[in-house]
């Protein structure tokens, strides 16, 4: 009997992870999720196992002796594993500001898009990379005191599948996705085939709000207001001196900040392609 175990090593910030995979199919899931993670060197490595077995097959995800998932859904397994990695990357980090935010760049502009789940952050990120911007992340950025970004470059994660009105991707790409009734993970390289890993300095902050029927609007906001909004997406503040507020405010003062309200892609087209657009 030939057993083809492989370990996928990845990491983010100061956390390293080893994912034991019992076959190539399991390894492909890990590679799908973490292909563009920057990696990390750490004294300790957190261990996970992905096991695929049977003709269907059945999938399970383990963390040491705890089973985190058992079932048939690649999407559910991938979703749980990604959230585990995100949690552990943030939880003890004391060196960066961890922000729940998307990020894209174009030429000398690097935009972060802070916000909670459901406010259209991933959809806006997808639209921007289909309209001339390069992908960095749709979920999490680490920011150092010099404004330099460490993006968690993962597959784009949408709470929709190809039957949804907001779907942007041509159907011929569907076989490249991990998808379910509740969401989809899309390899960002389908949008940006010439992807190159970058860690630029942030220049602009856009706080998106998806609101059906609302009047589309891009409004420049003050650094104080921007800092207030940014604190709501600052997920490791408790680990930092003074909750990182002064350092984060200093970064915000070097950026331009905007609030963006939109209800559909036509709105985005009007805002970003108008002559008065700052982008």
């Amino acid at each position: 009997m030939k057993i083809n175990h492989q370990t996928y090593h990845t990491g983010f910030g100061d956390q390293a992870f080893a994912i034991e995979c019992n076959n190539k199919d399991a390894y492909d899931i890990a590679e799908f999720l973490f292909l563009d993670f920057p990696g990390a060197i750490s004294a300790t490595t957190k261990q996970y196992d992905i096991i695929l077995s049977g003709p269907v097959p059945m999938l399970s995800l383990w963390k040491n002796d705890s089973r985190l998932y058992y079932g048939k859904s690649r999407y559910q397994l991938a979703y749980i594993l990604m959230n585990e990695i995100i949690y552990h990357s943030i939880n003890t980090n004391k060196s960066h500001h961890a922000l729940h935010a998307g990020a894209v760049f174009k030429e000398d502009r690097c935009i972060i898009l802070p916000g909670q789940s459901g406010n259209g952050k991933s959809t806006l990120t997808s639209w921007l990379i289909m309209n001339g911007f390069q992908y960095l992340t749709d979920e999490l950025v680490f920011l150092d005191s010099e404004s330099q970004l460490l993006p968690m470059t993962r597959p784009i994660s949408l709470k929709a599948n190809s039957s949804h009105d907001s779907w942007l991707l041509p159907t011929e790409h569907n076989k490249s996705l991990i998808t379910s009734d509740t969401g989809s993970m899309i390899p960002h390289r389908l949008f940006n085939p010439l992807f190159e890993a970058k860690q630029p300095k942030v220049t602009d902050i856009i706080f998106p709000e998806y609101k059906v029927g609302a009047e589309p609007r891009l409004l420049e906001i003050s650094p104080a207001r921007s800092s207030l909004y940014l604190l709501q997406s600052h997920v490791n503040a408790r680990n930092l001196d003074g909750h990182g507020v002064s350092e984060l405010a200093a970064i915000v003062k070097t950026c331009r900040s905007f609030s963006l309200t939109y209800g559909n892609f036509t709105d985005l087209q009007k805002i970003f392609h108008s002559d008065s657009s700052p982008f």
């Binding site: 104080a224 207030l228 002064s246 405010a249």
Partner: peptide, 11 residues
């Protein structure tokens, strides 16, 4: 207090 030009943030 975190001071900005004409505004402040209290936390």
């Amino acid at each position: 207090v975190e001071k900005f030009d004409d505004e402040i943030l209290l936390y």
